[in-house]
């Protein structure tokens, strides 16, 4: 199953980030193509997204089921297509950035063709969804903070699965980046106020 991972850093405490991320209602509207979501119970909700399938856009209803909700640390969920044969899941992980700790190893370098395809996918994504959120820089002297990593995996099934996956695959990374950055931008705006545009993150594709 195609899976992508995107990490971004915020000059905010993990507690602040967790307060926001722990409740899906807060960030579900930040999902790419969000139309609406309905809460079924504590663990289940239905998201209606306008998804770009290659060239056209289509309404997709996904049932999100929370599988892991670890205090101040992570939210994991599965996704099940309600009107399309598509399944997947996501994981949001929050980690403290320790000022003196060595930086985490950079994601493995991808071959040029892959990076070009990602660039192209981002370009197409931005054309369809507009520019990404404006990120704010941390105030001078700020140390520490939180690293937010969003892992997203999606796979279409059924007879047309290979074809849909060929179109879906390139859109996953921009979608993961979009959500993580929107969460970060929102929290920065609320807690840091105005500041210079920054935005920092790194992406990795785990499986093709």
């Amino acid at each position: 199953m195609p899976e992508v991972e995107y990490t971004t850093k915020m000059a905010l405490s993990r507690e602040l980030v967790w307060e926001f991320v722990k409740d899906m209602n807060n960030w579900a509207p930040m999902l790419t193509g969000y139309q609406k979501h309905e809460i079924i119970d504590d663990k289940d909700s239905i998201w209606t997204l306008k998804g770009d399938v290659g060239i056209l856009s289509r309404m997709v209803r996904l049932k999100a089921h929370v599988t892991e909700w670890s205090d101040r640390d992570r939210v994991a969920f599965t996704l099940e297509g309600q009107n399309e044969k598509v399944d997947g899941g996501g994981l949001l992980v929050m980690e403290d950035v320790v000022a003196d700790a060595p930086p985490p190893p950079p994601p493995p370098k991808r071959w040029f063709g892959r990076r070009f395809m990602d660039w192209l996918a981002r370009k197409m994504f931005r054309r369809m969804h507009g520019e990404g959120p404006k990120r704010l820089a941390a105030p001078a002297g700020t140390e520490g903070g939180t690293r937010l990593t969003f892992t997203l995996r999606m796979e279409a099934g059924g007879p047309t699965g290979p074809l849909v996956n060929a179109m879906l695959g390139p859109a996953l990374l921009p979608a993961a980046e979009d959500l993580a950055n929107k969460i970060a931008a929102h929290l920065e705006k609320v807690h840091l106020g105005s500041g210079a545009t920054s935005g920092s993150g790194s992406a990795a594709e785990k499986a093709a």
């Binding site: 290659g54 007879p159 074809l163 179109m167």
Partner: peptide, 28 residues
């Protein structure tokens, strides 16, 4: 735009009458 098959191929493959048999892997 997502299914690169010539009209001749579409006819040979039965795009209308046998859609499940289309080579979706090849098209991907």
């Amino acid at each position: 735009g997502m299914t690169a098959m010539s009209v001749s191929e579409a006819t040979d493959w039965g795009v209308f009458s046998k859609p499940s048999a289309l080579p979706f892997g090849l098209l991907a």
